[in-house]
Each structure stands twice: as structure tokens, then as C-alpha cells.
């Protein structure tokens, strides 16, 4: 008699052995009660496993949930692929505006720049001629700062209380 063929019993049960091995195990089982009991245990357990899981049902709404997830993923991927559309359209629009109104815009910007320089120049001259104007500006800035902090504190006090 061969030693207990524990490692073969599972494949014997599943009919996955060669005809020769199948016959050999069958002959052993005829003489060995211990192996017959083990085989019976394995057979019963196989049925229990099949019963336990074959009764498990998938959720009913699964198709809808999966298709919604697929739609969302497809939309996100389409969005990712079109990332360049916004900056590209911005650049194209700016180029078109520059080509159509470039010279007018350039003139307008240069006039504005000249006006700004002239305004700074005049203000510095006025401030130099009347020194008290600096004092007035300083006073005005301090008052605005104080009023702002007072209003802010009051506002925060109202919202927290």
C-alpha cells in the first residue's frame, strides 16, 4: 500500500488526475478508511463553499452606477484632453485684437504713459511749493487707518457675538 496520498485527494475529487493516477488513488481508497473520510470531508466542504457563494446576489442598481461612473470618467478625460483650449483661445484673441487695432492701441498706451509721467511731475512740484500739503496727507492717512481699524473691530465683534 502507498503512503496516504493527501496531496492527490483534491485533484482526485476534481477528476483532474491522469487515468493511471486516478486508478492508483481509487485502489488506495478501497483499503484506507482514513483517506476515505478525508475525501468525504473535502467533497462536503466543496458543496458548502459552492452553496455559500452561489447564493450571493449582486446589487440591483449596479449597471446604472457603473455606467454613471464610466460617463463621469469619460467626461473628465475629455476635459483633460482639452486643457489647452482656454489658454490657446486667449492667445488667439489677443493676437487678433493686436492685428486689428495694434496701431491705435499703441498710440493710446503711449498717450496714457505720457499723461501719467506729467501728473507725477506736476504733483512733486506742487508738494515742493506747499510743504504743509505733506502734513495734510499724513493726517488724512492716519485718520483713514484709525477709522478702518475701528470699523473692522466693530464688525468682527458683531459677527462673533
Amino acid at each position: 500500500m502507498i503512503a496516504h496520498p493527501d496531496e492527490w485527494l483534491s485533484a482526485y475529487l476534481d477528476n483532474e488526475l491522469s487515468a493511471e493516477d486516478q486508478q492508483r488513488i481509487k485502489a488506495h481508497l478501497a483499503d484506507c478508511e482514513q483517506c476515505r473520510l478525508l475525501l468525504e470531508d473535502l467533497r462536503e466542504m466543496q458543496l458548502q463553499v459552492a452553496d455559500a457563494y452561489r447564493s450571493v446576489e449582486a446589487p440591483q442598481e449596479m449597471e446604472q452606477q457603473i455606467m454613471q461612473a464610466i460617463e463621469a470618467k469619460t467626461a473628465a478625460q475629455a476635459g483633460d484632453k482639452a486643457w489647452f483650449v482656454v489658454p490657446l483661445s486667449g492667445i488667439l484673441s489677443l493676437t487678433a485684437v493686436w492685428l486689428l487695432f495694434g496701431t491705435v492701441l499703441f498710440r493710446l498706451l503711449s498717450v496714457l504713459f505720457k499723461f501719467f509721467v506729467a501728473a507725477i511731475y506736476s504733483f512733486s512740484h506742487i508738494a515742493a511749493a506747499i510743504p504743509s500739503i505733506w502734513g495734510a496727507i499724513l493726517l488724512l492717512a492716519i485718520s483713514i487707518g484709525l477709522i478702518s481699524s475701528f470699523s473692522l473691530r466693530r464688525l468682527l465683534g458683531n459677527t462673533t457675538s
Binding site: R54, V56, E57, A58, P59, M62, E63, I66, M67, I70
Partner: peptide
């Protein structure tokens, strides 16, 4: 594909 999910959801979920 939705019909395929209906057909195979049971073994896949199991």
C-alpha cells in the same frame, strides 16, 4: 456594455 454588465455582474460580484 450595460447588457454585458447585467449578464456578468453576478459572477464578478460573487
Amino acid at each position: 456594455f450595460t447588457k454585458l454588465i447585467s449578464l456578468y455582474k453576478a459572477p464578478v460580484y460573487r
